[in-house]
Design a protein around this nucleic acid. Structure first.
Length: 376
DNA sequence: TAGGCCATCTGGTCCT
DNA sequence: AGGACCAGATGGCCTA
């Protein structure tokens, strides 16, 4: 036994040999004594380990027989009526071994007096109200999540499941960018975002990206550079993009945290561009729990009414421009399907009306490095 | 009309 | 004991 004990300690603790020898020389006598006492105890109990549980307690926790009235509803129905003790017929815990029949355990059902029924109903009503509130809170949180995932539409909300999927993909995509330290091209980015999404949502997201890129082709870059979309899921020709961030008269480098947010984010292969707008939401306000940076406005091609939408929307007009390499890949059509697989021809015929669709590259990445990365 | 999505109710389970 | 959380059931609404 001692040898086994040594081996056991040696293996499990991985102690050095010197410590082990000291351990056994000092501790082993006590261990041997305790073991001897343990053997005495078990032998005095007829070779069985002493049962420590109270018999009555054991009865309550016995799982061999289903407890009658163990469910919440039944216990509610059979709950103790503190105001009337008329029908109390509790079982006693002790002399239950009188009969051969298995004893029914747990709280017994009681007569449903009118007062008890009324209380049960009231409790159910309260529980329903709580459940409603809980679900409303959950939906509110989901709404907030919708606002920070890359594509947001007031009129055509992403479903709950699609919101969660897109959020997951978004996080993974950002993580991938941080890991790799380089921008993916637009196609890869869209594929990452749309992985596992349904076809309509895929079209929505891809349409968001594509339409935003299409939206900023009107002006050449201030610095003369022209960028070409590596490939676009819905395009047949490469695009060029204006570099409006630095050329924008509203761009104020180092104009505080707000501008930092406003200018810092750009999605993979994209940059959020600050456009002339109105007032800025107070991102530091505790009331502000929606977007932490303005939405990227999608107003070109499909709808121009975004410019005249709500004050909030007017406050920030963002656009996306691809600021990646000046690569011009052979144009190839992308077909986005569920699970990111390329399935069928995806074109804008499946794209819902983007009256108020926003690209939300609005959650500023928290790291300076990431900001610098997106802006170099 | 079928299917998807959603809100609500309800009962069960777990935790404090 | 009461609340939170969860999942199933159900019915309404919307869209293809």
């Amino acid at each position: 036994m001692i040898v086994q004990l040594k081996l056991c300690v040696c293996i499990s603790c991985r102690l050095p040999a010197t410590m082990l020898s000291r351990l056994f020389s000092e501790v082993l006598p006590d261990v041997q004594r305790l073991a001897a006492e343990w053997v005495d105890d078990t032998e005095s109990d007829g070779g069985k380990v002493k049962e420590e549980r109270e018999p009555c307690h054991l009865e309550e926790n016995d799982l061999d027989e289903p407890r009658e009235g163990s469910s919440r509803a039944e216990s509610e129905m059979a709950e103790d009526d503190d105001d009337d003790d008329d029908d109390v017929d509790e079982e006693e815990c002790g002399d239950e071994n009188g009969g051969d029949k298995p004893k029914k355990r747990g709280p017994k059902k009681r007569k449903m007096t009118a007062a008890r029924v009324e209380r049960s109903k009231m409790r159910r009503v309260k529980a329903n109200a709580r459940e409603r509130t809980r679900m409303h809170d959950l939906n509110s949180a989901l709404d907030n999540l919708r606002k920070v995932v890359p594509c947001y539409s007031k009129t055509q909300k992403l479903s709950k499941i699609e919101t969660l999927r897109l959020a997951k993909n978004y996080i993974l995509a950002l993580g991938e960018i941080l890991r790799n330290g380089k921008r993916p091209d637009v196609v890869t980015y869209v594929q990452m975002l749309c992985k596992g999404l349904s076809q309509p949502t895929t079209n929505l997201v891809a349409g968001c990206l594509q339409l935003n890129t299409r939206n900023f082709l009107t002006e050449p870059c201030a610095d003369g550079a022209r960028f070409h979309m590596p490939s676009s899921p819905f395009s047949v020709h490469p695009y060029s993009y204006r570099c409006s961030r630095l050329s924008s008269p509203h761009y104020q480098p180092g104009a505080g945290a707000l501008n930092m947010r406003a200018h810092s984010y750009s999605g993979p292969g994209y940059e959020a561009v600050y456009m002339p707008g109105g007032t800025s939401p107070d991102y530091n306000s505790p009331d502000y729990e929606g977007q932490h940076s303005p939405p990227v406005c999608l107003n070109g091609g499909m709808s121009g009414k975004q410019q005249e939408s709500s004050d909030t929307d007017r406050s920030f007009h963002y656009s996306m421009h691809y600021s990646g390499l000046t690569t011009s890949r052979p144009s190839h059509s992308l077909h986005f399907g569920p699970s990111g697989a390329r399935s069928g021809g995806a074109h804008s015929e499946n794209i819902p009306p983007f009256h108020d669709v926003h690209l939300h590259h609005d959650r500023a990445p928290p790291y300076e490095d990431l900001n610098a990365f997106f802006h170099n």
